[in-house]
Design a protein around this nucleic acid. Structure first.
Lengths: 330, 330
DNA sequence: CTGAAAGCGCTTACAG
DNA sequence: CTGAAAGCGCTTACAG
């Protein structure tokens, strides 16, 4: 393997100069630069990244910690991360926690040792103050969730308002018994969506029944199971709002298996607008998030923190949109 | 940041000894080892991975190059990669080519500079001989595809036989005009599946019509468009075999929009058995691959090549299974 | 079993 | 604008 020394010798300059050329340092005369570049090309010299990273104490990689890469919601966000990172010469180290808080913690530790340049948490299960602590040690951006009262950089939609609007939409259609299938409550965005749901009922002076709020785990199965439980109750809900599309689809399955027609007998709204939501029948009404945008903006923000150490905008809130399709009346 | 030197000083040993303790080298007395470990724990010393990697010329990361992380087929395989890698102290550098051959090539180059310890190609768009060349430069395992006539390590199902069997299943049900929606033909596994389809027709002495073989790009939309084209033809197929589930689902949509009943008017078989296949209605009959297993075995093989430089088994073929559901008659 | 010392291939003050 | 030289924090023959 060729070293910088070899290049320097042939180009008749010092390794310092070669290094400067490679890093696009301005303190090199045009003539020298051209000469060195020519030798580099001829020799097909590739600098040793391991050495360079070690020397500069950077790895040019960003750790992305997320619950489940197989979840199409996250894979779309990851595309945003990736494009933005790659464009700036960074690579992604993907850490899939398998929805486990313990794994999440482990990854955070692992990743700190690895000298990644920054961390993106796409949804966090750890408590706010730990995220805050982490962000003091290493650049961190939280994607998909908004954290109040801390100076943690976040990129997300307004989950509270989004959930409130979807619930109000159901209320506008005359529903008063609206079942809410929430995601795991240790996750901030889950709590925010519950908050939005409750706000809507409160605003419209509709009584809140605890029984109508049930916690799932974002899987199709949990949606199915909870819906089955709802339907076994004598005071069945007439509409369902689920905190993600998978659970909504699980709920749809349960309704169909009981012979209920959607949306005539029961209305259903999901959250996220993942591709499956237009593949099921009827097509799912759902709250759409700008997934790719969340990803790219979060990465942009992180790289900005890393490179300038100056963060102008601490929190970005992106717009959401209720996609009215066929599981609710228009 | 603490260095090894600090630990050595306090423990009253040389850095060489500390390094040996850390790497679990046997040439350290039990007593010394304990002493050093104690100091390491007290000081909460973490070795600098960047330095260690540089020195050892390894990065302890594996590059995974795949077409599309958002595709649930790949995300399941990635889980297999990840679990196996993590268990052995390796991390994954995920490179999503966005289904582009050019991007794939770029990643290969990028990754070679990065000193990753090995590469997994989950499906390759580059020609066989380039894969072979690459595998001489750096440990490579090809996942999902089988390459004949080269010594490239692969982990896959037998795509030819799987496609043949699925086609024969349709023939057994009396179909003779079977439309085949293939994936991009630059991909080996696409060609293998076409091969299996043709073999089945040949074996059963059913004429092969070129018109019935159409190339999609693995997307729902391409399945929809091709199906629409099939249906516009006066000699419509009575059954469809698609090279992945997304295209099969696209085909289903097209059939439904024309008022065709599945499976009564037309039978459909997909490939891969991704989660959506049981969420659509009717549930999709499809060829199931052991996705997770493909991932973990491929990673195991790669790590084996890296660490022992000795590869006992060059090619692994895992079993597939036709999952008969509701888009075909039983 | 242990240590002294060289060296991995870069980058970066420093001096000119 | 350029070079000599130190040094990043480890690991690894080598010698004992």
């Amino acid at each position: 393997m060729l070293k910088m020394e070899d290049v320097a010798k042939i180009a008749n300059v010092s390794t310092a100069t070669v290094s400067r050329v490679l890093s696009n340092n301005k303190n090199v005369s045009k003539k020298t630069k051209e000469k060195v570049l020519k030798v580099i090309n001829q020799l097909e010299y590739k600098p040793n990244r391991l050495a360079s990273n070690f020397r500069k104490k950077t790895s040019e990689t960003i750790a992305v910690i997320l619950p489940d890469i197989a979840n199409p919601f996250f894979s779309e966000i990851v595309k945003g991360f990736r494009d933005e990172a790659l464009e700036n010469g960074y690579h992604l180290l993907l850490c899939d926690t398998g929805n486990s808080a313990a794994q999440e913690k482990e990854f955070v530790e692992l990743v700190k040792e690895r000298f990644v340049d920054g961390i993106i948490l796409a949804t966090a299960r750890m408590p706010k103050d730990e995220i805050y602590k982490l962000s003091q040690e290493i650049p961190v951006v939280l994607a998909c969730e908004y954290v109040e009262s801390y100076e943690i950089p976040t990129v997300s939609i307004d989950n509270v308002s989004a959930a409130r609007e979807a619930t109000e939409y159901l209320i506008d259609q005359g529903h008063t018994r609206i079942g809410f299938i929430t995601g795991p409550l240790e996750i901030i965005l889950s709590r925010d969506r519950v908050k939005g749901y409750r706000q809507a009922l409160l605003l419209r002076e509709i009584p809140i029944h605890d029984f109508l709020i049930q916690e799932g785990d974002f899987s199709v199965k949990s949606g199915y199971d909870i819906m089955t439980k709802f339907l076994a109750n004598e005071q069945k809900p007439t509409a369902i709002f689920a905190s993600n599309d998978e659970m909504a689809i699980g709920a749809m399955k349960a309704c169909k298996s009981k012979g209920l027609r959607i949306p005539d007998d029961i209305s259903i709204i999901g959250f996220d607008d993942v591709p499956i939501s237009t593949l099921v029948e009827p097509e799912l009404t759902t709250v759409s998030q700008p997934k790719y945008e969340i990803g790219s903006q979060a990465m942009k923000m992180l790289l900005n923190i890393i490179e300038t150490n100056d963060l102008k905008q601490k929190q970005i809130v992106l717009p959401h949109k209720l996609m009215i399709r066929q599981t609710t009346h228009p």
